[in-house]
Nucleic acid binder design. Structure first.
Lengths: 140, 140
DNA sequence: AACACAGTCCACTAATCTGGTAGACAAATT
DNA sequence: AATTTGTCTACCAGATTAGTGGACTGTGTT
């Protein structure tokens, strides 16, 4: 299960994807629309900015916006920034690899299975982008 | 990322799959072979027994053994017992579903994507069994 | 009956992570 | 100068993780 931090981050990015091209969006607006605690969201967006996913503008008329077109940023890259490894164990992670001590990976049954699940998840998250996070317009 | 508890549990089950049909195996033997802290492992195996994955026998000649043939138990069922939901969010979980408040699932972009990753992971974990956890014999 | 063996169960701990909150500060605009 | 908006630091309560210790219970052997 992902943390609320990651969930909030993805929700916010979905909102920014919907608003793409319309200029900066206020943190407060995102927080209100997506029901995310304001100060918590501030922190998450800052992290995304520091990782070049978002751009910001201070002062009146300021806010946050996507650094790239929503189709250009994969969900995998966001996941890795906020949540960390996509793989279920460090010894099968591509971006956060750590050798499994007390275990020879070449013969490890668990290792093989975990690589399969990693690849299955990755196939989805590498293909899908911020564009896919945009909510469908709701008729009221 | 899965917890060490889940990792240890899977490792132990892999060992019991290797030893299937040979009678009860001591906790101490599993702990030593798989480098798992003994008392921690005791606790994990007990949980697996209480969920009918394992059978046990006390006293001399006792130990733990698989309740079923290793091919009969999916990794998904083990994962759900030890780690919990396979899905990344409660609102897309099949076995641990919780409605997402402040969000209409029918229109939620994140929901759709999370269902895709859930299904991708599930396809692997439902198909693979304890049999797949058995390590390959190592030539020494 | 006594003993050793091996799983069961309960209580406790230290360290880390999660999900926040508060407040001062810095930059941009009016 | 005043207002707006993001930036940064610090702090916190509660839950979770990864264990450890010790007493208890059931089983088989002598």
């Amino acid at each position: 299960m992902i943390s609320k931090r990651t969930k909030y981050g993805l929700k916010a990015l979905g909102y920014l994807a919907e608003q793409y091209g319309k200029g900066p969006v206020l943190i407060a607006e995102i927080a209100e629309q997506k029901k995310i605690p304001l100060k918590f969201l501030e922190n998450i967006l800052l992290q995304l900015k520091q990782n070049n996913i978002l751009e910001s503008k201070k002062g009146k008329g300021g806010g946050y916006m996507l650094a790239l077109h929503p189709k250009k940023t994969s969900l995998a890259s966001i996941y890795r920034i906020i949540e960390g490894p996509i793989a279920m164990m460090p010894c099968v992670s591509l971006n956060f690899y750590e050798k499994c001590k007390d275990c020879n990976e070449a013969y490890c049954g668990l290792n093989r299975v975990m690589i399969m699940t990693r690849d299955a998840t990755l196939k989805v998250l590498e293909k899908r982008t911020l564009m896919d996070l945009a909510d469908e317009p709701q008729m009221i």
